[in-house]
Simulated scan of single mutants.
Amino acid sequence: MVTYKKRYNDSTQVACIMVAIMTPKLGRHYEGYWSYEMNKDLMEKYHKQARQEKYEVVKSTIDNMMKEGEPISSHVQRMQRYMDRLIKLNVNFDQELEINIMLNSCTSYYDQFMLTYHLNNNETTLSQLHNLLRTTEVGMN
């Protein structure tokens, strides 16, 4: 009986916390629901919407090509915002894929850089890649 009361109290606390962090309108709708019921209902309501958003962000990320004459920093920052959004949507990918997507989105002016980058086979972070691309951009001007 003690275990049941503890679990009942824990479940009630979780449900209260869930309702408390919702918008007032949504919170009023879920008053009286158990946390499991709330979670199930929210998943049913918002799963399709999240899937559609993931699709649109992935598509935008892949379709986002650097424009001729665009500074590399603004392009990298825009791509980074897409990557950050994907992470928030629980789209998991490793840093190597992130860098490959970034390199693929650059204009043909960076072809020699990409060849050298891949030949050197260096492990870099996205910020290190950004610095390398900026240095290359300065050298091309």
Rank of each mutant, 00 (worst) to 15 (best):
M1W: 03
M1H: 05
Y4G: 03
K5P: 01
K6A: 07
K6L: 12
K6F: 09
N9W: 05
D10E: 08
D10Y: 08
S11Y: 00
Q13R: 12
V14K: 14
M18V: 09
M18C: 12
M18E: 05
M18Q: 07
T23R: 14
T23C: 08
T23E: 15
K25M: 02
K25D: 06
L26M: 14
H29G: 00
H29N: 01
Y30P: 12
Y33T: 09
S35V: 06
S35Y: 15
E37C: 06
M38Y: 10
M38T: 14
N39C: 14
N39A: 13
K40H: 14
L42A: 09
M43Y: 04
K45M: 12
H47D: 08
H47A: 11
Q49T: 13
K54Y: 00
K54Q: 14
Y55F: 15
E56K: 02
V58W: 00
V58T: 05
V58E: 04
V58R: 07
S60A: 15
T61V: 04
I62F: 13
I62D: 01
D63M: 13
D63H: 03
N64W: 04
N64P: 00
N64M: 09
N64F: 09
M65I: 06
M65P: 00
M66A: 07
K67H: 07
K67N: 10
E68Y: 11
G69H: 11
E70P: 09
P71C: 11
P71I: 11
I72D: 03
S73P: 01
S73H: 08
S74A: 13
S74G: 05
H75V: 03
Q77F: 02
Q77L: 06
Q77G: 02
Q80S: 11
R81Y: 03
Y82I: 06
M83T: 02
M83L: 11
D84Y: 11
R85G: 06
L86K: 06
L89S: 07
N90V: 00
N92F: 05
F93I: 01
F93P: 01
E96A: 08
E96D: 12
E96M: 09
E96T: 15
L97C: 03
L97A: 08
I99M: 03
I99Q: 05
L103F: 07
S105M: 07
S105H: 04
S105E: 06
T107C: 10
T107S: 15
T107Q: 13
Y109L: 12
Y110M: 10
Y110D: 04
D111M: 09
Q112W: 06
F113D: 12
M114W: 03
L115S: 14
H118K: 15
L119D: 09
N120T: 09
N122R: 14
E123G: 01
T124E: 02
T124A: 02
T125S: 13
T125M: 00
Q128G: 01
Q128T: 08
Q128D: 04
H130T: 03
H130C: 05
N131R: 09
N131G: 11
N131S: 15
L132C: 05
T135L: 11
V138C: 03
G139A: 15
G139P: 00
M140N: 06
